[in-house]
Every structure is written in structure tokens, then in C-alpha cells.
């Protein structure tokens, strides 16, 4: 696997990209391209749908079929695309505000339907594009431009939430864990059903600075130091898990998928 293998998927005239020095978004993008390359997907059958936010800019950089949609609605567009043409591989990129605040309902209902999409949530714990406001995923007591004395809200624990909403595949990892990141993306894309991969990623410009974590490099080291595997976390109390990032596969099951069930009905009614 070399860089050339993934550079062929880039719209190179758009580079260097717009993301800040040390922003984790580029690490996730490169991992996604490695996953797509490893699965040998036909680029003409891949669709990347993104919402609005720094993370949403990803669709502009990739030479697949791409749609840059509206804030919070990427999953709704993706649902329509997949229903219209089920043979496409539809990958959805969302920010934490995008996917868990304004788009939170789309997320739980896409999971409930278990529609065959792969949703990647770029969780930088903050609204990056609009200036560092807190999001539903900003941890308790952490700082944001709209929480200068610390956040009094409690965050969603999003991966378990999406699991209980009904997704077939759910995993969480970080940009530090690049090998797992690629592996989970591959497993999510291959899985027939709704796949959700939450990736903890650094926004050094806002989250890192407000919370005195530091630059992009420091944020990657922070992810390394604060991560704990799903299996180890099972035996720990809420207090012990307070500043931990639980990483691993939360769900990986086979169950009926929305479009296949829909097609079965069409087939059945057609023959009666």
C-alpha cells in the first residue's frame, strides 16, 4: 500500500486542502481512501455524501461521485441516493454537530431502519467551521467558545446510542489508531446494513487550544493516552471512565436490511 494508490482518488487541483495544520480530518480522509482501495471498489460506484462543517469539505477533495449537502441532512440525501440506486456504495461524512445535533434524528432513524449506508462521524468535540461552539459531543466541563468556563451539558455517548437505535455495525476509534481506523471503515463498508464509525479527531484550532491540549501532534498523543478498549472498559465504573475514550467494535451483527426488505415487497406484490 503506497501513497500513490490513494492519490489517484484525489481531485489534486484542490490541494493543499483547506483544513488547518494538524487537523485530523485529513487522516480520516486518507484512511477512507486506503479502505476503498483495499476493497477494490469501482470508483464510479462510490458516492461520498457530506454535510456542512469543516469535515463536510471532504466531498470536494475526492474523485468519486460526491454530494456536498446541507447541515445535518447528509443522511437524508444518502438515503435517497441509495434507494434510487441500491448498487452504489454510499459513504456519509458528518461532523459531530452535523450528525448529533441538527442531524441527530436522521442518524437514529437511519440506524433504526438499518439502511445499507456507511456513516463516518468526525468527532472533534466541537463546531469547527463556525468558531468552536460546544456540540452535543463536547465532554462535560471541557471548554468551547460558548462554554468559556466549562461545559455544563453532558455529551451523548454516541456509538452505544446508534447501536441501540439498531445499526448492524458500530465502532469507535481515533485518528491515532490509524490501522484500526482503516479496518473498521472496511468492515463498515462491507457490512450489509447501517454502519456507523465514530472517529475521535483533533481540532487544534479550537478544541485543542481552548482546552490547552495543544497542537495536532499533542491531540494525537492525547487520544493515545486516553483510549481504552471496549472490552477493558466493561469492568470499569463511570468515574474511572470519566476522561477515557472507549474504542473498539460495539456492534457487528447480521440483521434484515432496509432496501433488501423493500425489494422483497416489490417482488412479492409484483407476482401476485
Amino acid at each position: 500500500m503506497s501513497l500513490q494508490n490513494i492519490k489517484k482518488y484525489l481531485r489534486k487541483d484542490m490541494f493543499p486542502h483547506i483544513w488547518c495544520p494538524g487537523c485530523g480530518n485529513g487522516i480520516i480522509m486518507a484512511s477512507l481512501l486506503r479502505a476503498i482501495d483495499a476493497l477494490a471498489l469501482d470508483p464510479d460506484k462510490v458516492v461520498v455524501v457530506s454535510g456542512i462543517g469543516c469535515s463536510g469539505r471532504i466531498s470536494g477533495y475526492l474523485d468519486f461521485n460526491t454530494v456536498h449537502t446541507t447541515h445535518g441532512r447528509a443522511l437524508a440525501y444518502a438515503t435517497g441516493i441509495k434507494l434510487a440506486n441500491p448498487e452504489l456504495t454510499v459513504i456519509v461524512a458528518m461532523g459531530d454537530g452535523d450528525g448529533s445535533a441538527i442531524g441527530g434524528n436522521h442518524l437514529i432513524h437511519a440506524a433504526r431502519r438499518n439502511i445499507d449506508l456507511t456513516a463516518i462521524l468526525f468527532n472533534n468535540s466541537i463546531y469547527g467551521m463556525t468558531g468552536g461552539q460546544f456540540s452535543p459531543l463536547t465532554p462535560f466541563e471541557k471548554r468551547a467558545s460558548t462554554a468559556p468556563y466549562g461545559n455544563v451539558d453532558h455529551p451523548f455517548d454516541l456509538a452505544p446510542l446508534v447501536k441501540s437505535a439498531g445499526a448492524s455495525f458500530v465502532a469507535r476509534t481515533t485518528t491515532f489508531h490509524v490501522f484500526n481506523l482503516q479496518k473498521y471503515l472496511e468492515r463498515g463498508i462491507k457490512k450489509k446494513g447501517f454502519s456507523f464509525i465514530e472517529v475521535i479527531t483533533g481540532c487544534p484550532t479550537f478544541y485543542g487550544r481552548y482546552n490547552k491540549i495543544g497542537e495536532g501532534l499533542d491531540m494525537i498523543k492525547y487520544q493515545k493516552e486516553h483510549s481504552i478498549t471496549y472490552d477493558r472498559a466493561k469492568n470499569l465504573s463511570e468515574e474511572e471512565l470519566a476522561d477515557k475514550i472507549v474504542v473498539g467494535v460495539f456492534q457487528d451483527i447480521e440483521k434484515p436490511e432496509y432496501i433488501s426488505e423493500y425489494e422483497k415487497i416489490i417482488e412479492r406484490e409484483h407476482h401476485e
Binding site: 501513497l3 500513490q4 492519490k7 494538524g22 480530518n25 485529513g26 487522516i27 486518507a30 485518528t175
Partner: peptide, 15 residues
Amino acid sequence: KLCELLCPELAVSVE
């Protein structure tokens, strides 16, 4: 290959 995998700019290639 950590340098290549972790570069957010896709700027490193280990040949």
C-alpha cells in the same frame, strides 16, 4: 509507515 499514515496532508510517502 506511521509518518505516511498520520500525515493529515497526504504529503509523506515511504518508498
